[in-house]
Amino acid sequence: MQLIADQQFLDQIQAMRDKIFRITKRMLVSQEEAEDATQDVIVKLWSLGSEKRDRYKSMEAYTVTMAKNYCLDRLKSKQAQVLSFDDSIRVPKTLSLQKEIELTDELNWVTQLIDQLPEKEKMIIQLREIEHYDFDQIATILEIPEGTVRVYLSRIRKKLRKQFLEIQNHGL
């Protein structure tokens, strides 16, 4: 019995691993950190044991929530570290600071625009536009009401489009 459950878990995880990786990379930006995060999340899931895992209605939503919380913790402790060194180091990452970076094509603009979004907005874009989760699932993962997800999403889509058009018209 245990073996079958383990095998099931492995199959599920195999399917989820790329998603976890993409989501953690969106949040943490660094490739290496995202790889570590993916491994850690899988180990955490594994250590829950099959009975506990089965109790969750949607293993997928649960896993993504776990990945999200992992990243938020990670970012928080990183920020705290930097703060303890020197407050002035923390310069907000804005587009104007990235002006020097050569933007070769429009996909790069989009990458930059999404990279400079706040964590929560990045997460919403990742979950909806890239992982194609429905509003209900996103609401569960982010622990906010469904209506709020829609409002956020609308705001982000408009904002990104506006910024994109500004770049297109005036250059960076």
Partner: peptide, 18 residues
């Protein structure tokens, strides 16, 4: 055109693998 860039980016991003 901007929509094409965004949808294009999202398509590409989904291809990323562990």
């Amino acid at each position: 055109e901007s929509f094409r860039s965004f949808f294009g980016y999202y398509d590409q991003a989904k291809l990323e693998r562990y």
